[in-house]
Amino acid sequence: MFVRAYLRASTKEQDATRAKAALERFAKDNGLTIASTYIENESGAKDWASRPELRRLLDDCKAGDILLVEQVDRLSRLNADDWEALKAEIRDRKVKVVALDLPTSHQFTKVNGDDTTARIFDSINSMMLDMLAAMARKDYEDRKRRQEEGIAKAKAAGRYKGRPENTERNERIMRMFREGKTWSQIEKDTGASKSTLSRLKKKSEEGKD
């Protein structure tokens, strides 16, 4: 059994490694060693296949491995359908999710020879995991709604100016396009969204002789 730690933050401005010490302390307290750590800055609302480090973690997993996270919302803020797809992927790979904020999952760190007890805990944990994932999604949708309401109110009052352009980053992206770098290279190096890359690629082409 390998323990694979997953650390996620939504943006590059946030520290995705913030919870690393807590995960290492939990592993030590439970007699485990973290075999590898996967760190990324991606929205938890993106499906798992669009999160390269989560995808790499699952690809690396063998049956019986543990996917260790600080909180369930680090793994998922997905809608119901996408959450079911991620759960199916985890289930098919026979991976156990252990979250520090989900005590019922901690039993997966112990070897238990009682099949009946293990199945009962597995059922309880699955239910609790679904509940926390649903709460994480609701929190995401509530924050998004409040943000949209705030923007609409600011626009109505003539106060909304939008997000300031990151001119230094955008110039770098256009330069990378002109140098022939691939979309995936630029996206990985800069963290810019595909819509931003599309806009800047067009702009970079307009600047050619």
Rank of each mutant, 00 (worst) to 15 (best):
M1V: 11
M1H: 07
V3N: 06
V3P: 05
R4Q: 13
Y6I: 06
R8H: 09
A9K: 13
T11H: 14
K12C: 10
K12A: 14
Q14R: 12
A16I: 12
A16F: 12
T17A: 15
A19K: 11
K20G: 02
K20Y: 05
A21N: 08
A21R: 05
E24L: 01
D29F: 14
D29W: 15
G31H: 13
G31R: 13
L32E: 01
T33K: 11
S36M: 13
S36I: 05
T37K: 04
E40D: 09
N41V: 10
K46F: 15
D47A: 15
W48L: 08
A49H: 15
S50I: 08
S50M: 15
P52Y: 04
P52K: 08
E53D: 10
L54F: 12
L58D: 06
L58S: 07
D59I: 00
D59F: 04
D60V: 06
C61P: 12
A63H: 10
A63T: 10
G64H: 03
G64I: 00
I66M: 14
I66V: 14
L67D: 06
L68P: 06
Q71Y: 13
D73Q: 06
R74Q: 05
L75N: 02
S76M: 05
R77D: 02
R77G: 10
L78H: 01
D81F: 04
W83M: 01
E84M: 02
L86C: 04
E89S: 10
R91T: 13
D92T: 10
D92G: 03
K94D: 13
V95Y: 02
V95S: 03
V98L: 03
A99Q: 01
L100K: 03
L100Q: 03
T104D: 10
H106V: 02
H106R: 10
K110I: 07
K110L: 08
V111H: 08
G113E: 07
G113N: 05
T116Q: 03
T116N: 09
R119W: 07
D122F: 09
S123D: 06
I124W: 08
N125L: 00
S126I: 01
M127I: 10
D130Y: 03
M131V: 04
M131C: 01
L132K: 02
L132Q: 06
A134T: 07
M135P: 01
R137I: 01
R137H: 07
Y140N: 03
E141R: 00
R146D: 04
Q147A: 14
E148C: 00
E148N: 08
G150H: 02
A152R: 12
A152G: 03
K153V: 05
K153I: 03
K155N: 02
K155T: 07
A156C: 02
A156G: 00
A156T: 01
G158I: 02
G158A: 02
G158E: 00
R159K: 15
R159Y: 09
Y160Q: 04
G162Y: 06
E165T: 09
N166R: 07
N166G: 06
T167W: 13
E168T: 14
E168L: 12
N170Y: 12
E171Q: 11
I173G: 06
I173E: 07
M174K: 15
M174P: 01
M176K: 11
R178S: 11
G180H: 02
W183A: 11
S184N: 13
K188D: 13
K188T: 14
G191N: 09
S193M: 04
K194C: 08
S198K: 14
K202G: 14
K203R: 13
G207Q: 15
K208F: 07
